[in-house]
């Protein structure tokens, strides 16, 4: 990328009204395959944005880029006004180094489809691991914080269990507590109910509902559960072919979608149940 290109991106976002997350002209390619094409997306502080769309539409990639699990091929991502993927050097933006990424990553937490709990640690140890070793909290404080969060997700009686002894729904709730223990400003939920048996999905969605009601977290969620998306989101983005085809409040997207592709997608998934 040339300097010319970078000059149109601000070093940090202006102070008047800063979105918590801003994707600015972000492009992601795997070889010749364009996964995301010049994406522009803002998420405000405290907003719950749901990303829906057919598989391969790039929706999971949006979250993974924000978590810095994927690099980007063009554009800039800002978090809380500061560039995430880039940093300032000599008055211009250059690709972020490891230190900058680690500092910025502290703002973001993520929950995965397959939970990814650490199998060699108990639920409590899973939650305490990063607060102690990354944030440097005293063990007692990390323990209190973790136990409180495990209580919040309804697992106070499972703190000393290893993941192998927990059901999928319980594991996912531990994973949510683990991410929250880092006190992120932005939480990402990547198809967190897709690997769960239908009867335990409610355990997890109830926790997310609680987060929306009681905390001022900024959240981005990829899901296939249209009912849940409709109920809980402030805004729904429909992705198609690496672009946002249509976005708006859930009542509009689900009630009266304007674009033909949105209508097709929604009728297909609703029919499938």
């Amino acid at each position: 990328m040339t300097d010319q290109d970078m000059s149109k991106y601000p070093l940090r976002l202006a102070d008047d009204k800063v979105p918590m997350v801003r994707f600015m002209n972000v492009t992601k390619r795997y070889g010749d395959l364009v996964v995301l094409d010049s994406l522009d997306l803002d998420v405000d502080e405290g907003e719950m944005v749901t990303v829906i769309g057919p598989s391969g539409s790039g929706k999971t990639t949006v979250l993974r880029m924000l978590m810095t699990l994927e690099t980007i091929n063009g554009g800039v991502i800002y978090v809380d006004g500061e560039p995430l993927t880039h940093m300032e050097k000599g008055g211009r933006l250059v690709p972020a180094d490891r230190r900058h990424i680690r500092r910025m990553r502290a703002n973001i937490g993520m929950c995965f489809q397959h939970f990814n709990l650490f199998p060699h640690m108990t639920a409590l140890e899973n939650c305490m691991e990063a607060p102690v070793h990354v944030l440097g909290l005293p063990k007692a404080e990390a323990r209190d914080r973790s136990i409180e969060l495990l209580g919040m997700v309804g697992l106070e009686d499972k703190v000393d269990q290893h993941p192998a002894r927990l059901s999928g729904g319980q594991q996912q709730r531990v994973a949510i507590a683990r991410a929250l223990a880092m006190r992120p400003k932005v939480m990402l939920f990547d198809e967190v109910t897709s690997a769960l048996d239908p009867e335990v999905i409610g355990e997890v969605t109830n926790v997310i509902r609680k987060l929306v009601d009681q905390h001022n977290l900024t959240m981005l969620m990829v899901t296939h559960q249209m009912g849940f998306a409709k109920e809980i989101s402030d805004r729904v983005c429909f992705f198609y072919d690496g672009k946002i085809e249509e976005q708006g409040p859930p009542s509009e997207i689900f009630g009266s979608p304007q674009k033909e592709r949105t209508q097709q997608f929604l009728s297909a998934v609703l029919e499938a149940g």
Binding site: M67, T68, L69, R102, R105, A106, I108, G109, M110, F112, H114, F115, N116, L117, F118, E129, A130, H133, V134, A175, R178, A179, M182
Partner: peptide
Amino acid sequence: GQWEAAIALNMTGAQRMRR
């Protein structure tokens, strides 16, 4: 997924490997 979870928890490369 284990690597990714460790990255998401902001662990350093050495911490990810060792712990």
